[in-house]
């Protein structure tokens, strides 16, 4: 038990925590945009799986990480378009259609994997880039500044997302579309356009989130390799009160817990009877997050389809 609380273990957990926050961040920031515009996309996990597979497949065949990333973004965009069409044009119940999108992504990525690759072989993913000087700092350098580019970009997107949302005309339209679409519409804002944009952006980000697993962190593809990470990302949006910083805090909290449980498993520190409980931690935390999520800040038109003149 005491082995758990040594400095190397602590640093290891913190390092992995920052690293593992990456897929949560991409997926949850993207989902946050979709939800701020009024659309809940529960299909994030399915998009992530398709993004993960696409990126891995392309990198396996071409060796190009850039092409792999581009492919994941493209597939995310296409699935985002599908979700937008279903929820904006067809006005479907978003919870149900999102689950459909998830199952579609889950099934298709497994099928394609079996058909096109069959077995998995590790690839060379994104390599760590130590930041000069900063990475030499004691402890802090090890935890924060020895990651690959995908990790840095994910964290850099947090202030960017906050800026877009709060300081740009686009952000104002997004916020209005998610809170009172009829008001935005009466001022000539295209609610459908804004929602399409945000859901597609969320799709692209979910694609990147998937790729960050398969060609950035794990460098492998396995069937259902996200194991529900996309759903946790949706929960993080609630937990974070629909703000980028809140989402980041949540993502770090979850990934730290996740890193902790991975360490416990790998190092075989705890007796096995405790271990199962530790593995459950992230999921328990998801439920807690949803219960205590700051509902008051929820976009008021969340998951409500909009059509002109119906109110």
């Amino acid at each position: 038990m005491n082995e758990l609380f040594t400095l190397p273990v602590l640093l290891g957990v913190l390092y992995s925590g920052v690293r593992l926050a990456t897929p949560y961040l991409y997926a949850a920031l993207g989902e946050m945009f979709a939800q701020r515009s009024g659309v809940v996309n529960l299909g994030v996990d399915g998009i992530m799986l398709m993004g993960a597979f696409t990126a891995f497949f392309i990198v396996t065949n071409t060796g190009s990480l850039a092409l792999g990333m581009l492919g994941a973004m493209l597939i995310g965009l296409l699935m985002g378009l599908l979700m937008s069409f279903v929820s904006v044009n067809l006005r479907a119940v978003q919870g149900i259609s999102g689950i459909g999108l998830y199952l579609f992504g889950l099934g298709l990525s497994s099928l394609l994997f079996k058909r096109l690759l069959g077995s998995t072989k590790a690839i060379d993913g994104f390599q760590a880039i130590p930041i000069p000087f900063l990475s030499d700092l004691p402890y802090v350098g090890d935890v924060f500044f020895k990651h690959n580019a995908l990790v840095y970009v994910a964290f850099a997107l947090v202030p960017v997302a906050a800026f877009v949302l709060n300081r740009t005309t686009l952000g104002l339209k997004i916020r209005a579309a998610g809170m009172k679409p009829e008001a935005a519409d009466s001022l000539g804002v295209s609610v459908a356009g804004v929602r399409y944009f945000c859901v597609c952006l969320g799709g692209v980000m979910a694609g990147v989130a998937g790729a960050s697993l398969s060609i950035g962190l794990i460098n492998l593809f396995q069937e259902n390799m996200t194991s529900g990470l996309g759903f946790i990302a949706v929960a993080l949006v609630y937990f974070g009160g629909w703000t980028p910083v809140g989402v980041m805090v949540g993502a770090l909290l979850f990934s730290m817990v996740n890193a902790f449980q991975l360490w416990v498993q790998v190092k075989d520190i705890l007796p096995s009877s405790y271990r199962d409980f530790v593995v459950m931690l992230p999921y328990v935390l998801t439920i807690v997050a949803l219960v205590f999520g700051r509902r008051a800040r929820q976009p008021t038109a969340l998951s409500k389809p909009f059509s002109r003149g119906e109110n």
Partner: peptide
């Protein structure tokens, strides 16, 4: 048009409600 049920977003400020949907003098920035 002043609608009977106001077309205002309650959680936004007065200025934000007025600026909504208009192009800004600073391009993409509010």
């Amino acid at each position: 048009m002043i609608h009977q049920h106001f077309m205002l977003v309650p959680a936004l400020t007065v200025a934000e409600n007025v600026a909504l949907g208009l192009s800004s003098s600073r391009g993409p920035l509010l």
